[in-house]
Design a protein around this nucleic acid. Sequence first.
DNA 1: AAGTCATTGCACACTGGTGTGCAATGATGG
DNA 2: CCATCATTGCACACCAGTGTGCAATGACTT
Lengths: 183, 183
Amino acid sequence: MKETRDRILEVALEVLGENPDAGMGEIASSAGVVRRTVYGHFPSRLDLLRALMERAVAEMEAVLAEVNASEADVSWVEFVARVWPVTHRYRVLLALRRGEHGETIHGLLGPVDELLADLVQRGQDAGVFARHLPAGLLSQLAYGAVFAIADSDRSDLGSRAATITSLLMLGVPEARAVALAPG
Amino acid sequence: MKETRDRILEVALEVLGENPDAGMGEIASSAGVVRRTVYGHFPSRLDLLRALMERAVAEMEAVLAEVNASEADVSWVEFVARVWPVTHRYRVLLALRRGEHGETIHGLLGPVDELLADLVQRGQDAGVFARHLPAGLLSQLAYGAVFAIADSDRSDLGSRAATITSLLMLGVPEARAVALAPG
DNA sequence: AAGTCATTGCACACTGGTGTGCAATGATGG
DNA sequence: CCATCATTGCACACCAGTGTGCAATGACTT
């Protein structure tokens, strides 16, 4: 069924998020299915990753479109707060860029990187974000902060803490960051 | 010779720093030696990692002792600037905590974590660092910032940028962080 | 009832990394 | 010159993960 395929993708996102080295077997059993079935939907591990990336790009584009459709004077800070959750959801892909299929992933994920860098760049130009690092690197860093928090074994501090920290790292003064973070 | 053993350790630190999944063969050839020779010095991969950890703990203790021996009113900020380089040098070990021998590594590296957490805790108590996250997590985050920068493909921005970013994330106002960072 | 289709259970081949055994080589120092 | 010892070069066994082939099962449709 098509449900199965979706469930595998969903579970793979979780499992690989926990451990990027998880094998097809582990993903399969976590999805309540046999290894062979996974290969039925995704001929190779890379195919599965590709499917994951397609979803990632799609969701990211959706969020960007949604935000762009809203008020023009939406603060960059709010923008950040909306974008990070999505990038966190697909954090595996970022982690996997250093691995075997790194080139492929880096290529397909490049546009997202550029979007984030663009975002931060505009924030810097608007004088909201600090300028001690290039925009591309700064966005990667803020991203890193988000999923470092998510990966911590404390579940009590959620996306709000991540957002505040990201903003701090981006150079937004603490008082303002705390005030702007949603939640 | 003993040189060989040292060289292997040194090279392993680099190679694994680039790619934590690098095999014994890759480490060996990078050290200009044959795989078999590595096994001569370190019976298993885990043994090699243990040796790496011993070094890490030793160096970290040395830095802490050095700083403690200096003036009592050394600012926390300077303290941070001195500690991060060491933790960055041994970044592999942090990365490897999520892997196969994660438990072992986590155990032997725990004391360092606690030291860093302590450091940040005292910074928070002194009112220098922000309080939006628990000390332990905050120190991990600042650490993450350091080696995210080091891992970037831009070699021009070094430890100064990393320090500034760490300080920003810790909640130190931008102007002050820039002023205090060495370099 | 018949047919379609996803899933399953096994068996298999292949790969890449790990760790070991052993004889040969070669430098170093007494 | 001789002995020692690190290093080397193979060969090997072993394991875990990947990907494939194929027949059997079972549910859902018409």
